[in-house]
Amino acid sequence: MLPFDPSDTAFIADPYPRFAQLRAEGEVHWHPGLGLAVAVSHSACSALLRHRALGRIWQDACPVDDFAAFNLLHRNSLLENEPPKHTRLRRLVATAFARGHTERLRPWVNTLADQLVDTLAARIAVDEQADLLKTVAEPLPVEVIAELLGVPAQDRHLLLPWSHTIVKMYEYGLAPDKRLAAEAASTEFVAYLRELVEQRRAHPGEDLVSDLVSVADADGARLTSDELVATAVLLLMAGHEATVNVVGNGVLALMRHRDQWDRLVAEPELLPSAAEELIRYDSPLQLFERTATAEVEIAGYRLRPGEKIAALLGSAARDPEVFTNPDQLDLGRSPNPHLGFGAGIHYCLGAPLARVEVTAILDALRRRLPELALAGEPERRSEFVIRGLHTLPVTA
């Protein structure tokens, strides 16, 4: 029997009861369908994310000749590499990020959130309901990442379709036509970003791409063109997909836990802890893989070199050994040691910016639409690894 079926619609709708059963049975389970072990406790997930004998070892999509662009993006990504390459990439990218980009964007993000929520309110006024996902949750992170990278306004409509198509490759058992579509999107994205990088080499601006072009190690080493492109794509896919789904999953949870929504409306000082709790409560990324580079043991489960294990982040986030009343949404929860941004050397570099985005949206919603409510049943995405919604109809 499989620990869980990632294609089962009932499981996708609510995986948390099954996760609780798995935690009661043990901390790590072999999943023959996925071909890897899955860790379900917070302790085991935290250990595997931090263990230096468990790395992100990229394996090319095959046949290799059919996935040249997709593989290029991942071979050169700091997320898919280990030291010493990861150390060099992260140092350079972190140095570029440290040039004040998050604080530079904060007031702009707050203004954008207000504008998008005003648009949502206007559509509700006309049609009595509107899709919060399409009107607010999806456009804001795309605009933010585009602004961060310096993508011209007339090109920003290209980014979301590319991201949605590429990230489907992270699901298991993907159909061949969707795999080919992911490669086509990767090819277009790589070509676009190569041109953008060359423009920034010739005409630097205040954007992150300009800083990524100029940043150098103490010995003068810089990011290669492939690394620059891979970094930009990673920022879009990781930053966009995570923020959209934190907002979508989170607002849905708030609408279903009215006491917590009313609490947020009345207590704006809860915004920072609310963002953390929404990330914990319904994780936008459910599974994150590692590969053993040496013999290693996690919670009594032994892995040999080359064997894979995954952290089930959604299960770790509901572990009663760490979180009091874990199935309860509590916007004031503290401490809240969720693993939503990862842990160890692969901890998310964009976490500060993601927090700015989520709190800006929550703040705009609670100020401008305090009577926000569901206008119908949302449509959930069918994927397991990236957990989110297709629609979120609301009224006010």
Rank of each mutant, 00 (worst) to 15 (best):
E276V: 13
P272T: 11
P268W: 15
P272N: 12
S283L: 15
E289Y: 11
P305L: 00
R302Q: 07
P305R: 00
A299F: 02
L287D: 01
D262Q: 14
P305V: 02
E297R: 07
R263P: 02
F288D: 00
T291C: 12
Y281Q: 06
Q286I: 04
A266P: 04
F288G: 03
R302I: 07
E289R: 14
L303P: 01
D262R: 15
E297S: 14
Y281P: 01
D262L: 12
P305S: 04
S273G: 09
L264M: 10
L270G: 15
Y301S: 08
I279R: 03
E289M: 15
L264P: 07
I298T: 03
P272Q: 09
L303Y: 00
A294T: 03
R263C: 14
E276P: 05
P284N: 12
E289K: 07
A274S: 03
R280V: 09
W261E: 15
R258I: 10
P305F: 00
L285Q: 12
E295H: 06
I279C: 06
V296W: 02
L264Y: 02
D259L: 10
D262P: 03
A275G: 12
E297T: 05
P284D: 07
E267H: 15
R280E: 12
L285P: 00
L287R: 04
R280K: 09
L264T: 10
P272W: 12
L278A: 13
R258F: 04
D262E: 13
W261D: 12
A292T: 01
Y281T: 04
E277I: 07
P305D: 02
A266R: 15
P272A: 11
S273M: 13
G300S: 06
Q286N: 13
A294H: 08
W261N: 02
D259G: 14
L264C: 07
E267K: 15
P268A: 10
E295F: 04
D282N: 15
E276D: 13
W261F: 06
I298S: 02
V265N: 01
R302W: 04
I298F: 00
L271T: 03
L287P: 01
Q260D: 12
S283T: 13
P272V: 05
E297L: 05
L303W: 03
E269K: 11
D282L: 08
A266S: 14
L303S: 05
P305Y: 00
R280N: 06
S273L: 13
I298M: 00
